[in-house]
Design a protein around this nucleic acid. Structure first.
Lengths: 344, 344
DNA sequence: CCTTCGAATGGTACCGCTACCATTGACATG
DNA sequence: CATGTCAATGGTAGCGGTACCATTCGAAGG
């Protein structure tokens, strides 16, 4: 058999791309590639001396492991996808931040996906993200596309849904009852003597669920909502200011308004003061989210406190624990608390 | 030679892991794997009929390409790393959001890294992130660790620094002059007759640079700063409220205070009103960032407007264009504008 | 007719790492 | 002394794609 060049010649090894590979480290340390791999991933398996020698070589050569190759080989990417409607809202941002930090401490990186589109885009986004072979997925809010839901379920990795309390979570759920929060606000207001009610809400599924809970609780007490204004998300302080006149037209003096966010409630407070309307005597307010601004505004907002930070952290813990094979709780319901300040 | 099992037997193909691979699609469509790859990546190379047949098979089997494998083989991950000090601040969140959305439209995904630690952690984070073989990197603020800087420079991918105007950017810079912004505020205040000045600033490198510019401009005019208070980031509205007494002690009536964020300035407005201090007559204020709350508060904040959204979008464009081989501008300086409202 | 050319498709060898076993040698055990 | 056990290390074969050519085939040109 004649000696000849292989039919399909090898891919040219680009000389400019002189990255250090695991085999370079192995050669430098006088060990095999697998030993270098172990030095970095499971150092307890190596003898002290070998470990030291390998780590010295890693340092000397400035070796940075190619995690893409590692992921392909080990089928563990150490990446987690987070799909969030927006990070412009401090509530979600806080949860995402805690999520990312907690995961980073265990060596996981977060792939950020911004949803908030139509169902078809959402499906494309989720599909593409799943193609990255994440070790887990965080979802804020429900996923509607059935194809996307099926793909998520079939991905075989932990899926955590936060901020919601859907009846049919895909896998793990860390949230609180939006309905229950709305009901609690209704009871708080009723118990404090208010008898006329309005709502200003962002037109967002979770806010609407709170609204439903609020209205249902009122109806059970024979009371009803006199006015309801929906605003396109994200809701801003300025939106709150602008919406006040509408509310005043529809409500008697001494009414109470439930706002779907502290932003809106803050706007109402500002506009009310500008018009000489007394809070809570002329108009009582309850916000949602317990944001910094609500604590700082004068009068300070009565609000519903939910801990976005804890939610993000818990979601991350769930994923980490599940991946380490520990048993976890599939449904975690966080408490929501009504913090009474000066607007009720 | 006796026939025996190969010495190192093949890795067991886990039967539970029945994911659809490119070869499955190829078999189903009666073409080779590479043709399927082309159907998804460079469809213009295929004939209409073959393309249709392959895409039908993709659909039928629910094939989701393994982007990890693709990245390893093609050396293009279609991932971009974004390292941000925090997303709790709406300024950075907005930029990151625009960045992520713009990249997503071109098929790139964002790997989120949260910095804001000490230099050693930062170095570890950046190293790990570079191990993911990103096609680009976004940095908010300067990277201090020299090792990290070297690694970034050697990564051979576009690096964009935003929100800053360091004299020695690693590669591309999209930002504005913090120093210049501070100077502009000083001039604005001087030109409007203010002669006594204070500053409340987050203890953050970029805010401090604005502070320096502010002070330098005052000194050139023979004026000087009477009081300067630094607060640990992130600055909140509540921080603003709390710091007011200190300022009042140190400043005469009619002084002007430059705040490093609209949050702080809003807190000052609220506390001032609570104490019956007139703004801008007793105390003038200038914020920074042009946030929603500053527009909505009464009196509305005079502030420095910078477009975080545009910065994120531009940064993304730079990366996309550079990766497509287009010529780009290495330094983009965004305008900063002083928006005069009611607090000066 | 043969040659040339370009469009369409395929074969092979990797990308850089790790799973799976095998191997080695020191030491304990019966 | 044979054997078993355990800790430490290595060899090989993928992981699932894509780059790099090669090949095929029909049409155009001489």
């Amino acid at each position: 058999m004649t000696l000849r060049a292989s039919k399909a010649t090898a891919r040219v090894p680009d000389p400019s791309c002189r990255t250090v590979r695991i085999t370079d480290v192995a050669a430098a340390a006088g060990v095999s590639a697998i030993t270098v791999s172990r030095a970095l991933n499971t150092p307890q398996l190596l003898s002290k001396t070998t470990l030291r020698r390998v780590l010295a070589a890693v340092d000397r050569l400035g070796y940075v492991p190619n995690l893409t190759a590692g992921a392909l080989s080990s089928r563990r990417s150490r990446m987690v996808v987070a799909i969030v409607p927006t990070i412009a809202s401090p509530m979600y941002a806080e949860a995402l931040q805690a999520f990312t930090r907690t995961l980073a401490a265990s060596g996981y990186h977060v792939l950020l996906g911004l949803g908030g589109f139509d169902s078809e885009d959402e499906e494309r986004l989720i599909t593409a993200m799943l193609g990255r072979q994440p070790d887990g997925v965080l979802l804020v809010g429900a996923v509607h596309s059935p194809t996307a839901r099926r793909r998520l379920a079939e991905a075989g990795v932990p899926i955590v849904e936060i901020w919601g309390d859907s009846a049919e979570p895909l896998d793990i759920q860390v949230g609180f009852s939006h309905r229950g929060a709305g009901e609690a606000v209704a009871h708080h207001l009723c118990d404090n003597g208010y008898r006329a009610f309005g709502i200003v809400s962002s037109d967002d599924p979770r806010a609407l669920e709170r609204l439903d809970g609020f209205r249902a609780a009122l109806e059970r007490r024979g009371l009803s909502l006199l006015v309801q204004r929906l605003l396109p998300p994200p809701s801003t302080v300025l939106d709150g200011r602008r919406v006040l006149p509408d509310l005043l037209d529809a409500l008697p003096r001494g009414a109470a308004v439930f706002c779907s966010s502290d932003m809106l409630a803050t706007g109402l407070v500002i506009e009310a003061r500008a018009r000489g309307i007394l809070i809570p005597d002329d108009l009582a307010l309850c916000g949602f989210g317990d944001l910094d601004i609500g604590r700082a505004i004068e009068p300070a907002l009565t609000t519903v406190s939910v801990d976005g930070n804890e939610m993000g952290q818990l979601a991350a813990r769930c994923i980490i624990d599940r991946l380490s094979g520990r048993q976890i709780q599939q449904r975690v319901a966080l408490p929501v608390e009504i913090v009474r300040r000066q607007t009720t």
